[in-house]
Simulated scan of single mutants.
Amino acid sequence: MHEMANDPLSAFRAINVDATLNLARQAAAAGVKRFIFLSSIKVNGEFTPMGRPFTEDAVPAPVDPYGQSKLEAERALHQLAGESGLEVVIIRPPLVYGSGVGANFASLMGALYRRRPLPFALVDNRRSLVARDNLVDFIRLCLNHPKAANQVFLVSDGEDLSTAALCRRLSAALGVQPRLLPVPVVALRALALLTGKQAQMQRLLGSLQVDIGKARRLLDWRPPISVDQALDSVARWYRESGR
């Protein structure tokens, strides 16, 4: 979120495009049958209108260097697949959480665990997340499923939460009562504008939903872990880690 490189796109391309394509070419030369690439929902964009989730057919619209580099990698892998016969599976997850999670999710857990007041009681957005165990299960399925070859999939827990709902359910998993303040969303957006924090606030106030219907229909996949089970697991790790 805090890119320090002078040329972020070149820095991301070096890893997400060049290194990925180099590995895929070596895999194809070694006779590897299938290559699974963990891309990002950022390929599709940063937000969705409420109730209108991203699908695999949506026109890609990355808005930052990271998302752009992931899209370029996807396109390069599709081209390699056509040239070499290597089967490529593209998976675009949203935010991934589980034990060891860091960044914004860990910060939110810390604020809730310490019962800090948070101004999200009135936020009625929808965000798709994916528990690490659910993502791993989907990757495992894609390793050998014949219908996964040369496909793009979106993946999530199958239940989208508002920021307020996430705070309440994560607090329950942590064994604390959340302190959510009923601050109007328009006031939060105004504050973000004044402080230059629009992008950060958008992740808390805006919606980003993905439709996993293709994974359900084509691969008969269902997330094996519920949201509450996954939140209980990450909360248990957080408490035991003594953070």
Rank of each mutant, 00 (worst) to 15 (best):
L191Q: 11
G175V: 10
I90E: 04
I15L: 12
D64E: 15
G31K: 07
G213A: 10
G102K: 14
V63R: 14
L108G: 07
R115Y: 07
E46K: 13
L193K: 15
L231F: 06
L122R: 15
N104F: 09
E74F: 09
G31Q: 01
L122S: 06
G100N: 07
D228Y: 00
V130Y: 01
N150D: 12
V88C: 01
Y238K: 07
P49L: 13
N6H: 14
F105D: 04
R203W: 00
R116V: 14
A121K: 13
A103E: 13
S39D: 04
L108R: 02
A165N: 09
R216V: 08
Q151Y: 11
G85K: 03
V101P: 00
D137W: 05
P117V: 00
G213T: 11
E159Q: 12
F138A: 05
N44P: 06
Q68R: 15
T55R: 14
F54S: 03
L170I: 03
G45N: 09
E87T: 00
V130E: 04
F37P: 06
S207F: 03
D133L: 12
T55A: 07
C142K: 03
N44V: 00
E3G: 14
L174C: 10
S39W: 06
A106Y: 10
R189W: 12
A103H: 12
Q177M: 13
S39C: 06
G206T: 03
A215E: 01
S84Q: 07
P93E: 10
G98A: 04
P182K: 02
I91M: 01
L170S: 08
E159G: 02
G213C: 05
L205H: 04
A58G: 07
L219Y: 11
S241A: 15
A24K: 09
Y66K: 08
S241K: 09
F47K: 14
E56N: 10
L122Q: 11
F54Y: 15
D7I: 04
S40C: 06
Y66S: 04
G242Y: 02
D157R: 06
S156E: 06
Q202A: 15
S156V: 03
P60Q: 11
G102C: 03
S207M: 04
V130Q: 06
R239T: 11
A28H: 02
A199Y: 13
V123S: 10
P182E: 05
R203P: 07
A14F: 03
K33P: 01
L95C: 11
N150F: 08
A199H: 13
P182Y: 09
D133S: 11
A29N: 08
G67F: 05
L71P: 00
S162L: 05
D18Y: 13
V43I: 10
A165P: 02
R75M: 13
L112I: 05
V186Y: 11
P223V: 00
L205R: 01
P117Q: 09
S171N: 03
F54V: 10
I15V: 15
N125W: 07
L231Q: 00
G51T: 08
N125A: 00
Q200S: 12
P53T: 08
L154W: 00
A58S: 15
F120Y: 12
E87H: 02
N44K: 08
E159A: 11
R52A: 14
R52K: 15
R75T: 14
F105P: 08
